[in-house]
């Protein structure tokens, strides 16, 4: 039948499926070039993975998303992960949609996939969204713990910087309490903190921070120069 004009394989396949001949219907559908017509029928026939593959093949992201939505509600999560795992486009779309609405899913996904950096990044962005200090540091702590037992160089650096972040927040909290009346330091970057300290005349504290966080000499001198100029302190 292939190659003859005037034949809609979708309609024939539908008919075959209605007759209960599922295998024949799938075979027939292979001849149907229009993915838009193919996929819903495949879903109806419970040929889920084929439907997903066909949707991906079509390049139509809407079709893929639609199939994914259906599959997610239908399958247990573990088998859903397995299904998308081997299909990069599907997992990319799942990740994007999950980033907006379902971070729990994202964490599970990264855990199953063994992607510690991605997993800790989710926690880091959650930490950024927290509004009170203890919760923020707690999330940061969790994030760095995820990376704790790896030896990979990038992971080690990431972990070090994460714990540094909580350390910095702690120092800033004390600064807020001791020398500012209101929250003024929390949330600044290290350089900004040092800059502000110098500008307000707390040179000692600034120097202490420089050594505590191992800031390079050159950076420190540039910061000092800029801060003193801003203060108009030419002494």
């Amino acid at each position: 039948l292939d190659g003859k004009p005037g034949i809609s394989f979708e309609l024939i396949a539908q008919a075959a499926f209605d007759e209960g001949r599922t295998y024949l219907a799938t075979q027939l559908l292979n001849h149907e070039p229009r993915a838009g017509k193919q996929v819903p029928l495949l879903l109806n026939m419970e040929e889920d993975e084929i439907a997903l593959d066909k949707a991906i093949e079509s390049g139509d992201n809407d079709l893929v998303l639609y199939v994914l939505l259906r599959l997610k509600t239908k399958h247990p999560l573990a088998s859903f992960y397995r299904m998308i795992n081997t299909r990069p486009m599907a997992s990319a779309l799942v990740e994007t949609t999950a980033r907006e609405e379902d971070t729990k899913l994202l964490k599970d996904l990264y855990y199953q996939d063994d992607r510690p950096i991605d997993g800790s990044n989710v926690l880091l962005s959650e930490a950024l969204n927290e509004t009170d200090m203890p919760r923020t540091t707690e999330k940061l702590h969790l994030a760095s713990r995820l990376l704790a037992d790896s030896k990979d160089a990038t992971v080690v650096l990431q972990q070090k910087l994460l714990s540094e972040a909580s350390q910095l927040l702690k120092v800033q909290e004390t600064l807020d309490k001791e020398i500012a009346d209101r929250s003024e330091f929390v949330g600044l970057s290290l350089n900004e903190t040092v800059y502000r300290l110098i500008r307000s005349g707390y040179g000692k504290r600034a120097q202490k921070m420089q050594s505590e966080f191992k800031m390079p000499e050159k950076t420190y001198w540039w910061l000092r120069l800029r801060a003193l100029v801003a203060k108009r302190d030419w002494g």
Binding site: L161, S189, L190, F213, T219
Partner: peptide, 18 residues
């Protein structure tokens, strides 16, 4: 560079590097 940038612009930029 990672360390310097994180120091200068904030630790949230670990995400930026990712």
């Amino acid at each position: 560079f990672k360390r310097q940038i994180v120091h200068a612009y904030g630790h949230q930029h670990l995400l930026t590097f990712s």
